[in-house]
Design a protein around this nucleic acid. Structure first.
Lengths: 346, 346
DNA sequence: TTGTACGCGTTATCAA
DNA sequence: TTGATAACGCGTACAA
């Protein structure tokens, strides 16, 4: 409640001097008055107004992170990284959900600008043929111009340093891994339509020799649907590579519900290694989400430093994949009676 | 970039008038000048400074939500609820992680106050014998005094309206449900030591006739450890009721890894019904996390309205529980050879 | 209906 | 080493 002028009056010192001692200014102040001011501040319970400070400094200690959905562990992990290092430096983190798309991102960006946010982190991927992409790019440029540091944690269509991992390579590597396990007929469950990240992951799958693809998404239900698509076919593939963990888990659960043995009959993998992946023992690709968040925060704290950064990813083989040789091959040997039956639930 | 004075100059109108038309003031303004101002604002791309506005109004359109860990789906769900209705009303949501405890909460509270946050939502539970509880209570009182609306979404030791569900009843109901399934020997995996929520849930278990309890926590690893404690005993219980979903999943996974059939040999349940619970088909209690977040936001938007609210919870029977009669009873019939063997993995 | 002027709490410049 | 004082951008009595 107490303001600088209160302190000033209480200590019998000018308001300017109070400001100097109360905020690590390099301006010299005599030890005597310094203690006087400190004491007054202590007694009156002085707390600087972040608002007033930001108004004059033209920069608040606020970091905005724009995500699609904070409930999605992918984004939560990023947000936590940002918050972690931000809080350590006295910054507050604003989390903005933009599930609605670029339009919502734009409005959040503007709002963040109105608060003179020191930095803005775009956690999600951009989309193809985005009608408001240009408008967003302009707004980003303006925010940058006004001193805000903008960082992108995925493929984006505006000018900002990127801190990311190689989506294409991640998808390639997990596909190759499955292939190395001896699986030939591999189906890829696509990510959301139009997302750059989806395109990248699909490309990785293709480069690794994958051919079969079916529509999917990043949500559990998308995975369930994809599994049903597969179940409706005459024959199941050897393995399913889903565009992300949550979809993979959807596939996994639907298959198990249908009585399919995973990984006995079919292998399933995801990408991202979010917490739920560990819970279900999903083979996936560990991706530096938390570290990306941390680095993004460091980027805004340290000012716009340098160009893009590509962080490493890593295979995380777990319990939903198995080498083909290690299981009863349904094709090279005569089909057993049990080979067809499991697909009907109950 | 353009400020009110810019508009004022551009439109040849006083700065006060500009303010009046640009912020739905009820002060009368002639239609002529109104359009003049609007046009100028449009041309110069006027955006009000949230900072300056907050400074003079003594209240920013910021809602702070203090959670233990945003990666925890329990809190993410709450945060999303807050953000959802907040964003709809032009408010920004600050998410603060206070994993470190009350000390961290206190520092976040202070920071939020420095930004003149309109409201502060405490998502997590308080703890017993908390050394800084009193200090926090004082800070909360001060924040309240300064016009901020403070809401608690769990048991707390300070004065603030509460929006919550009945933890005791939730634990009681799930335990009773398991009991109704015919299970007698039920073990409760405790929540984190010292948390009010832990005490409440434990009490519910006890009231439902439960007796056996083992140490646990709210994390996956805690559940894994609890499972190992159980595996080390001579005999497994009929069912395990864990203090929350994540611990339950830890128990579940460890048991399955040990070759135990869930729910064939043992039933497992959680509390909260977070997303991962659905992923693994965990029987649990659905709890109004999202709605609590939404209501909390409404509470801060509508000012301090009324007293505590207790929202309903609901049983969510799924695939990790089974009626005792429906499975081979290991005790009333002669033990079969397969009854003992599953416990050794591999 | 419009304009003037003060205050919100800081930082920063310039004198003293 | 210290102190006035002008911004920062806005809301709002009060006056015109």
């Amino acid at each position: 409640m107490a303001s600088l002028s209160d302190i000033s009056r209480h200590a019998g010192v000018s308001i300017a001097t109070c400001s100097r001692v109360l905020n690590g200014s390099d301006h010299p102040v005599s030890e005597a008055t310094r203690t006087r001011v400190m004491k007054a501040a202590e007694e009156l319970g002085y707390a600087p107004s972040a608002l007033a400070r930001a108004l004059v400094t033209r920069s608040s200690r606020i970091i905005g992170v724009i995500v699609a959905d904070i409930v999605d562990p992918y984004f939560a992990e990023i947000a936590r990284g940002v918050e972690e290092v931000g809080a350590g430096m006295g910054y507050m983190t604003m989390v903005c959900s933009a599930k609605a798309g670029t339009e919502a991102e734009l409005s959040h960006l503007r709002q963040l600008r109105d608060y003179h946010a020191a930095g803005i982190v775009f956690a999600g991927s951009g989309r193809h043929n985005d009608p408001s992409a240009h408008e967003l790019a302009d707004a980003v440029a303006e925010a940058h111009h006004r001193g805000a540091v903008v960082v992108a944690l995925a493929q984006r269509d505006f000018d900002a340093p990127r801190i990311l991992f190689d989506n294409e390579a991640a998808a390639h590597d997990i596909t190759a891994h499955v292939r190395d396990l001896g699986h030939e007929r591999i189906t890829f469950v696509d990510g959301p339509e139009g997302l750059h990240t989806s395109v990248l992951r699909r490309a990785g799958f293709t480069r690794a020799g994958g051919r079969d693809r079916i529509p999917g998404g990043f949500a559990y239900e998308d995975g369930v649907r994809a599994a049903e698509t597969l179940l409706a076919r005459d024959e199941l593939p050897d393995a399913v590579v889903a565009a992300n963990d949550e979809a993979a888990i959807g596939v996994l659960m639907r298959f198990r519900e249908a009585g399919i043995d995973v990984p006995g009959e079919i292998s399933i993998t995801g990408i991202d290694d979010t917490r739920p992946a560990r819970f279900v023992g999903l083979t996936t690709v560990t991706v530096p989400l938390h570290e990306m968040g941390r680095r993004a925060a460091h980027a805004v704290l340290g000012g716009p430093n340098g160009g893009d950064v590509v962080l490493p990813h890593q295979l995380a083989p777990r319990a939903t994949t198995r080498a083909r040789s290690a299981r009863s091959d349904r094709r090279s040997t005569a089909p057993t009676p049990t080979a067809a039956s499991p697909r009907s639930p109950g």
